[in-house]
Design a protein around this nucleic acid. Structure first.
Lengths: 221, 221
DNA sequence: TAGATTGTTAATCGATTAACAATC
DNA sequence: TAGATTGTTAATCGATTAACAATC
């Protein structure tokens, strides 16, 4: 088992994918799975799976594989997903509404418990049973509600300020939809969702191909 | 200049971040930028910036730096962003509506030109001037409209089928919001948006810290 | 026992950083 | 010229894969 202090981001990312797969298997009543099968499901090699798990301990039985229920519980514990994370969502725009209404986050352990927007006209809105609150209340509400995760879904030029207010309010993890790099103090974690960047990467991979009529630039191979 | 056939995904990702920064600088009237400044802006080293650009050619002037306008145009061309990519959005749910209504994608070169949903009741809807169309029309419309990129915003169990229909309709790049791994033929590129996974990674990084009262699991250091 | 599969080390592969000659 | 900064190679670092003894 390697030094647990230095676990690569890529490993953590795969851990969450393993967990998702394991939860599915568990629901389907599968009892045992091998590293080869688990890897196959998420697009990794069996060696990769075993190495990843090795960062955290020994979970399998030689000759047999891994017990799905046991490993599921272990990964939930490792990823700190026992219990529920309480989330504040800032920005009552299109994305904000989609996230507040969607149940996928709740099902995976993240519960949005407060909405904020700087526009007073938005305060009339109630989404998924939550009233949109003014930014001035952010600090107090986050403290009262024991909120430790924030989602930033505001325009780019407001994002840094919102990040600072969230950190000031005790938030330690931020999911950021604004296409800017946030400056946060050490100990605060930021994860960016950058859809335009992802689409641009797709564009590169597709090269000049955009339908016969509209072809314009073709990368040399 | 290294072999251009094998460009790491990480390089492409940074290229799109460089471009975003350059577009901002260009708008602000900045004429020249060094690799150190450009790296600083996106959180990379100057060597990294120079190495990344080196995959595609020579764009700078020794002793001076890079001309912002020139480099911006070069990156747009490299990322195949001259002109507009035509996009089909499948799934008229929360996320679908947010994406259809948001203008950020359009501003960055991606135009949603058709919406689809399998639920006939959704066909009454018109978002951002686009009527929701039945899945049966997907193939015909994608062909007619020269659509080469698709966005999947449907429930997990429908995602693979939608992917297949999109590929069948000529789509070559897919942005996938469903938390499943899509199987697509070679030559089709998939980019996943997995918000729950991103939040779970944050949860791990935050360890057991979830507000004093609610602390439950703490990872050993 | 024989076959299967883990845990773990060593080898390989790839990506980042350091360094510096070229040159504006 | 002197200072700055690129383009590019070599050195370092880190992550993935291969291999295999341990063992169910």
């Amino acid at each position: 088992m390697p030094d647990p202090a230095v676990i690569p981001r890529a490993v953590i990312q795969r851990m969450s994918l393993y967990l998702r797969q394991l939860e599915r298997l568990d629901r389907d009543g599968v009892e045992t799975i091998s590293s080869a099968q688990l890897g196959e499901a998420i697009g990794a090699s069996s060696a990769q799976v075993r190495k990843d798990l090795d960062y955290f301990g020994q979970f399998g039985q030689r000759g047999i594989g891994y017990n799905v229920a046991t490993l599921t519980r272990a990964l939930r514990s490792i990823l700190a997903l026992e219990g529920e994370w309480r989330v504040a969502l800032v920005g009552a725009g299109n994305i904000g509404r989609a996230l507040a209404t969607a149940r996928i986050l709740r099902e995976r352990g993240f519960r949005i418990v407060a909405l904020f927007d700087s526009d007073p006209r938005k305060e009339a809105c109630t989404w998924a049973g939550l009233r949109v609150q003014p930014m001035g209340d952010l600090k107090r509400v986050c403290r009262e509600q024991h909120i430790t995760v924030g989602i930033i879904a505001v325009p780019s030029d407001a994002a840094q300020s919102v990040a600072e207010q969230l950190v000031e309010a005790g938030v330690r993890g931020i999911l950021n939809f604004a296409p800017v790099r946030l400056n946060v103090p050490a100990g605060v974690e930021v994860s960016d969702v950058d859809l335009a960047s992802q689409l641009q990467q797709l564009a590169f991979l597709l090269g000049g191909r955009r339908g016969e009529q509209h072809q314009s630039v073709i990368r040399s191979p």
